[in-house]
Write a protein that binds this DNA or RNA. Structure first.
Lengths: 102, 102
DNA sequence: AAATTATATGAATATTTGTTCATATATCAA
DNA sequence: TTGATATATGAACAAATATTCATATAATTT
């Protein structure tokens, strides 16, 4: 079902939307989030997949956590991350879709 | 229909997805794009709605045009902009939706 | 307890980028 | 043609930010 959306929104709302998309506006973070589309993964595994240092991954995950895009689960000394909800994966899928086909 | 997406993509693909979302990662550009959700509008009207200078609007529109997010139509000395396709409005709607409800 | 492993954090740096200002181009009016 | 209007563009500056490096914390192993 497609909701109707006013063609004028508050600057505050616009700013929050921008903030959300901004979290998706970095190559490394896209690699991280795509890696989380199906399974949860720990930081080390994510670092490998995005080919950046674990420190860099940790910084990214912190931002993603603050925006509620990912959730953390600690198990022993590892921390497993997963996408916070289905809406996030839909957004990522839409972006991928737009780039690959449409 | 939900497509299955591999949980590992090339860095090139990730970079293009990031570039797409990056275009949506600025408050002014969100205000501009939301203003275009229903009607096409000229630059002056867009500047009013986003409350930034026409020059700033023009710079933003240039980037959005290069990424094929908006299309321009010249009529007399005015230039009317509209969203390039439905996929774009879906993305914006999803972002708004995520911020306002979900 | 000491050493090792996994992750987090703060500071510093380099790069990117949004806006402004000045100026350019194009179209219309007088 | 001259002047006014609408939009575009380039340079410059300030602000935001991704990564690295060094260090900290927490959990496990020896």
């Amino acid at each position: 079902m497609k909701l109707k959306i006013k063609d004028e929104i508050s600057e505050g709302t616009a700013s929050r939307v921008a903030e959300l998309f901004n979290a998706l506006s970095d190559t490394s973070r896209i690699l991280l989030l795509v890696a989380l589309l199906h399974h949860e993964r720990n930081v080390g595994s994510l670092a490998e997949m995005a080919r950046i240092s674990e420190s860099a991954v940790s910084h990214h995950l912190r931002n993603l956590r603050l925006l509620h895009l990912v959730r953390a689960r600690k198990q022993g000394r590892q921390v497993f991350y997963r996408l916070d909800d289905d809406h996030i994966s839909d957004l990522i899928r839409s972006g991928l879709d737009h780039v690959q086909h449409g």
